[in-house]
Computed example of a mutant assay.
Amino acid sequence: MADKNQETMNQNDEKDEETEETVTAEVIDADNQESSEEKSSEDGEKPNQAELDQLQQERDDLNQQLLRVQAEFDNFKKRSQKEKESERKYQAEDLAKELLPVLDNFERALQTDVPDDTKSFADGMNMVYNQMKDALKAQGVEEIESVGKPFDPNIHHAVMQVEDEQADSEVVTEELQTGYYLKDRVIRPAMVKVNK
């Protein structure tokens, strides 16, 4: 029985030695594998100079493209803002152009001689006319002063030339139809007679 115990112990010792050799071999294999992975990862982390130059060029190109897009967007915002301001500034232009012939008719009607029995009616018409002019003035519509001023083709439309020795040359002598500004824009030039 002692022999059997001795034999079992010897077998256990042999198994322990085999296990140690297997573990040692596995540790060595693992170390070799780690060192080969480290070498390959070191190679992956250190790209060559050509790859670095290419990546830097791509980055620079993308930065330039981003700057161009930002500049275009800023320009678009500024242009949109200017268009909105211009639209607000001249929003009354269409309405003013529609009302100018009405003002002309009021002026013609008020220039006629009125009988005494319709004087109050004429006064009422005059009040309406003045109210309309005030409303347009509040929106920035102003009359162009022409008579006695030098002829300017930007604000005057010459329909006749006269010879008046008492007036200077190229000066407006008579206004046939009133011209109007809307703020700083001419919406209708004044129709005038000009001295030669």
Rank of each mutant, 00 (worst) to 15 (best):
D104C: 01
N105R: 10
N105E: 08
N105D: 12
N105W: 12
F106Y: 13
F106D: 00
F106V: 08
E107A: 04
R108Y: 05
A109C: 08
A109S: 10
L110T: 05
L110M: 04
L110W: 02
L110E: 03
T112S: 02
D113R: 09
D113I: 08
V114C: 02
V114G: 10
P115K: 08
P115Y: 11
P115F: 12
P115Q: 13
P115R: 09
D116W: 06
D117K: 14
D117W: 13
D117L: 14
D117E: 14
T118C: 14
T118I: 11
T118F: 15
T118L: 14
K119S: 04
K119M: 04
S120G: 13
F121H: 05
F121M: 13
A122N: 14
D123E: 15
D123R: 11
G124A: 14
M125A: 14
M125V: 07
M125I: 13
N126M: 10
N126E: 14
M127W: 12
V128Q: 04
V128E: 01
V128K: 11
Y129V: 07
N130E: 15
N130T: 05
N130Q: 15
K133Y: 03
K133N: 06
K133W: 03
K133T: 00
D134R: 15
D134W: 09
A135D: 11
A135L: 13
A135S: 01
K137I: 02
A138F: 07
Q139T: 05
G140N: 03
V141S: 01
V141K: 00
E143Q: 07
I144N: 08
E145Y: 04
E145D: 03
V147R: 01
V147C: 04
V147M: 00
V147L: 00
G148S: 02
K149V: 00
P150Q: 14
P150A: 14
P150Y: 09
F151L: 05
F151C: 04
F151S: 03
D152P: 08
D152M: 07
D152I: 09
D152Q: 12
P153L: 03
P153D: 07
P153G: 04
N154V: 10
N154C: 08
N154A: 07
I155M: 07
I155G: 02
H156E: 06
H156P: 03
H156C: 05
A158D: 05
A158F: 03
A158M: 09
V159P: 01
V159W: 01
Q161M: 03
Q161W: 07
V162C: 01
V162W: 00
V162P: 00
V162H: 04
E163M: 15
E163D: 14
D164W: 05
A167I: 03
A167R: 13
S169F: 12
S169T: 14
S169K: 15
V171W: 06
V171R: 00
V171F: 05
V171E: 01
